[in-house]
Design a binder for these strands. Structure first.
Lengths: 104, 104
DNA sequence: CGAACATATAAGTAAATAATTATATAATCA
DNA sequence: TGATTATATAATTATTTACTTATATGTTCG
């Protein structure tokens, strides 16, 4: 596949509000699924499915800690990704308003 | 709309093979519709519709020259766009293989 | 072991999107 | 003016995508 096509694939992946929000949050710190559910106010399966797409594209990686799956950005030195991360607005506010729920 | 949402919108717009190709080509030089039809090997209405989306988002601008509509990148100093353009692979090869058709 | 919890996956549904086909508009030129 | 060319728009169809609901898997802990 041509460079341009792969770039389009990446843009498509990031061209979703929820997925881009996940990437932006992970740019600050790693998170488990239930934290993302809280932060994005959506359902657990919805988060899990977006995560899978990001993982399939190797944008994020998973580390299990007990019963929790934590996710973090993977290969931040990967071509393109660094440039994209630089565009993301800071997510401090999101975290400030965030009161961790029982699960995590 | 939040910064992040607008960024997602832009990624979605660029997350299409054909539209990204158009932007990449326009990064080299302005083109009329029939040239894009040739270069992308797709139908004229298909090109026109992608162009409309790019124009609505003010990524490209139109200048009519006689019966031809030429398009070029608009406001290349716009936030984000410059960073995105820097990621685009060079399109020289595409132009080399391109033999302009009767129309233009 | 079995209940409770965290997460993933599968199946189904609804909405959005791209592409095609058909038609309209606008400019040129004989 | 009428034919031709370039392009836009509208209508339709097909595909893709996101989301929901339901269920399965894996871990912890009594």
């Amino acid at each position: 596949m041509a460079d341009l096509d792969r770039l389009a694939e990446m843009f498509k992946l990031l061209g979703d509000k929820n997925r881009l929000q996940i990437v932006a949050l992970l740019n600050d710190r790693e998170l488990c699924v239930c934290e993302m559910v809280e932060l994005l106010s959506t359902s657990q399966p919805n988060i899990s499915q977006h995560i899978r797409k990001l993982k399939d594209a190797q944008l994020i990686k998973e580390t299990r800690k007990g019963q929790w799956n934590y996710y973090s950005l993977s290969a931040t030195d990967k071509p393109y990704l660094q440039a994209v991360l630089a565009l993301l607005p800071n997510q401090e506010e999101k975290f400030k308003q965030f009161t961790p729920v029982a699960c995590c």
